[in-house]
């Protein structure tokens, strides 16, 4: 575009190797470095790690985490938090299973009704979170912590803690273990969710408004952005995505479970932050969130193959999350220096 030449352009000095490395780090973040380390480490620990079958299996197992992370990502972008994402998963799992098992018609109609009920329940949960944050001005941390307790309690109340069985076989065959072109349907759904979310956030006005509200709510408000509507959209989208993830998990488990998803808030926040999504809001890309979730899946899968105790996986996730937050801080500081031409 030649228009730029008509405006005075201020040049920046070129730097040394350290300067170049800093620029690269600002651009790509810490995740690619972590992924390379993980791939090398686990491929050395297990011969099966870098096989097509294992990668496919790991992605299929983690597709629900990828989708839930996308939900968490939207809320983080809007400057919020969703600690209820695990409880939404449990409530949706139970609702979907109960709706399916109560149907007497064809398996297809039972599956469709179950999925619709599940997604609507997820969206309703998101709406409740959004109303608390946007309308009642409750801190998102507190609001979603409170609703997590409510949703979890509802799931347990509906089932008395007993798994809901009697789901159509087709549900599990299609969504749990089905494939299209040799790739699991759940992986395709995760990919579809990522693409749809990318379109929403990158190519539409509401998406840009989500970024602006996360970056500076006051600036967005004064620019004529409807902050209330934007926050509601973010939380409802998160609820819908958590619901899709819950439906996939229910299909894999073949039962509706009230006790699932307890670790999802940590996993999804960790995945997003490791991917380079800012906890301060307003910064991050869909690809960052997806890669963060994939990284967490790689670590879990690699440690399983290396027969490392699952408790250690939690420790590793926590340590990596802390490192990612430190890296995010460093990246923010370096970005300012790079843009100012000091690096």
């Amino acid at each position: 575009m030649t228009l730029q030449s008509e405006v005075e352009v201020t040049a920046r000095p070129r730097g040394s190797v350290i300067s170049y490395a800093a620029r690269i780090f600002v651009r790509i973040g810490v995740l690619p470095i972590l992924v390379v380390i993980a791939l090398i480490t686990f491929s050395l620990m297990s011969d099966n790690f870098l096989t097509v079958d294992n990668i496919h299996s790991a992605l299929r197992q983690n597709s629900y985490i990828i989708i839930a992370t996308l939900g968490q990502f939207v809320v983080l972008l809007a400057g919020g938090f969703d600690l209820s994402i695990g409880a939404i998963t449990a409530l949706v799992s139970v609702s979907t299973a109960m709706a399916m098992s109560s149907q007497t018609g064809s398996p297809l109609s039972a599956v469709v009704i179950g999925i619709v009920v599940g997604v609507l329940v997820g969206m309703a949960c998101g709406l409740l979170n959004g109303l608390g944050v946007a309308s009642l001005n409750i801190n998102p941390f507190i609001m979603t912590l409170a609703t997590a307790s409510v949703f979890s309690g509802l799931a347990l109340m509906l089932t008395s803690g007993v798994p809901v069985s009697g789901l159509p076989m087709e549900f599990s065959d299609w969504l749990g273990y089905g494939s299209v072109f040799g790739i699991g349907i759940s992986i395709w759904l995760a990919l579809l969710a990522a693409v749809v979310l990318w379109v929403l956030l990158t190519l539409t006005r509401p998406g840009r408004h989500i970024y602006s509200v996360g970056s500076s709510p006051r600036a967005a408000r004064l620019s004529g952005v409807n902050e209330f509507r934007t926050l509601i959209l973010a939380y409802v989208t998160a609820g819908a995505l958590a619901a899709v993830g819950a439906v996939l998990l229910t299909a894999r488990l073949e039962t509706g479970e009230a006790n699932i998803g307890a670790s999802l808030p940590l996993q999804t926040i960790a995945a997003a932050v490791i991917g380079g999504v800012s906890l301060r809001g307003g910064a991050g890309r869909v690809l960052d969130a997806v890669l963060g979730a994939v990284f967490i899946g790689i670590v879990a899968n690699g440690m399983n193959l290396a027969q490392i105790n699952s408790y250690y996986q939690m420790i590793v996730t926590g340590v990596v999350l802390a490192l990612a937050v430190v890296a995010d801080r460093l990246r923010t500081r370096l970005a300012s220096a790079v843009y100012a031409g000091k690096v």
Binding site: L203, T204, R205, P206, R208, H209, Y211, S212, G214, S215, S216, R218, A219, A220, L222, S223, G224, V225, S278, G282, A283
Partner: peptide, 21 residues
């Protein structure tokens, strides 16, 4: 009242973007 994380274009057109969808 600028959004620091957004670029110049995004800030200039915030709330009055060309074409909504």
């Amino acid at each position: 009242a600028l959004c620091e994380n957004l670029n110049v274009i995004q800030n200039l057109f915030l709330g009055q973007e060309l074409r909504p969808l």
